[in-house]
Amino acid sequence: MAWYDKDSDGKSRLVLECKAMKEVAKDFVLKIKSDGTLFWKGSITPVENCFILEIQYPANFPFDAPEVYVKSPKLPEDTPHLLDRPKQKLCLFHSGYAKKVGIYNPGKTTAATMLGHAINWLLCFEVWLVLKTWPIRESPTDDD
């Protein structure tokens, strides 16, 4: 059973997700894959390039964060901060570190929050395209 269909909490969370997304990105459309996975699809133009994004809810949402993919354009081969290069999945926070200390918080993070993180990533990407330097620092590890 899908996370949004499991109980009343899942249903009310989906309503809340829709409300949050409509407030910040009303052009994004909620879609469903054949396996029941829900995702938002829409375009964003942070500076001058237009990107088509998918924000996908993982199977165990809200315990894991929604994942963000750039569906188009195809990014350069050497683009940094991609967790899955062929699928162009964005690294929005340090997954191992997040598991340890909790970067993602289901109590306050929605797909709309992830869209905000994605826009930050895209802004960094635009800088990287010109300077070949990622303009913000990497997340810390447990040894820091």
């Binding site: 340090h94 810390p140 590890t141």
Partner: peptide
Amino acid sequence: VEQTTKAIDYNDPQMDEKLS
């Protein structure tokens, strides 16, 4: 989150394990 300069090896399949 943004207080380190340590690079992450995205090609290391054990990255998650090492960090957690």
